[in-house]
Each structure stands twice: as structure tokens, then as C-alpha cells.
């Protein structure tokens, strides 16, 4: 499953960050790395982007970006 598919309130563990270049690096720089725990907080009112908690702070990213992040429950 990827992070874009996780439901609000769900806590998941990151397995792999895919994609490439600047976007992938940015996602990892923000602390979403292999093995770290992520909670999906909510989906924006219009369905995108999503808000997650990672390493104790809140981060927003689009579903298209989240779909590059493989996670497991």
C-alpha cells in the first residue's frame, strides 16, 4: 500500500520512498525515511493534499507525492 491510500487516523510504517530527483529528496529531507512511523492526520477539505505527522511535526503533501511512498500498517 502507498501513503496516499492510507486512511486518516491510521499509523503506518514507511517501507520505501520511490520517485526521483528533487521531489524524492525533499520528501526524505523532511524526515520521511525507511522505517519511520507516520500518522495520516487528515485530508484537506477538497480531497487533496493530505496532512501527516512525521517525527513529531505536521507536514502536508499531495496524494500524487504520497503515492510514491510505500508503507505498511
Amino acid at each position: 500500500m502507498n501513503l496516499g491510500e492510507a486512511r486518516p487516523g491510521e499509523m503506518v510504517t514507511v517501507r520505501k520512498v520511490g520517485g526521483e530527483g528533487a521531489t524524492m529528496r525533499r520528501i526524505m529531507d523532511m524526515g520521511i525515511t525507511k522505517g519511520c512511523k507516520v500518522i495520516v492526520r487528515k485530508v484537506a477539505p477538497l480531497g487533496d493534499p493530505i496532512e501527516i505527522t512525521v517525527r513529531g511535526y505536521e507536514l502536508s503533501l499531495r496524494k500524487s507525492e504520497a503515492s510514491n511512498i510505500l508503507v505498511e500498517a
Partner: peptide
């Protein structure tokens, strides 16, 4: 462009 953005407390 990517929208990876911190939401400060």
C-alpha cells in the same frame, strides 16, 4: 511543483 510543506504549530 511539489507541495511538500511544513505546517507549523
Amino acid at each position: 511543483a511539489p507541495f511538500v510543506m511544513e505546517l507549523p504549530s
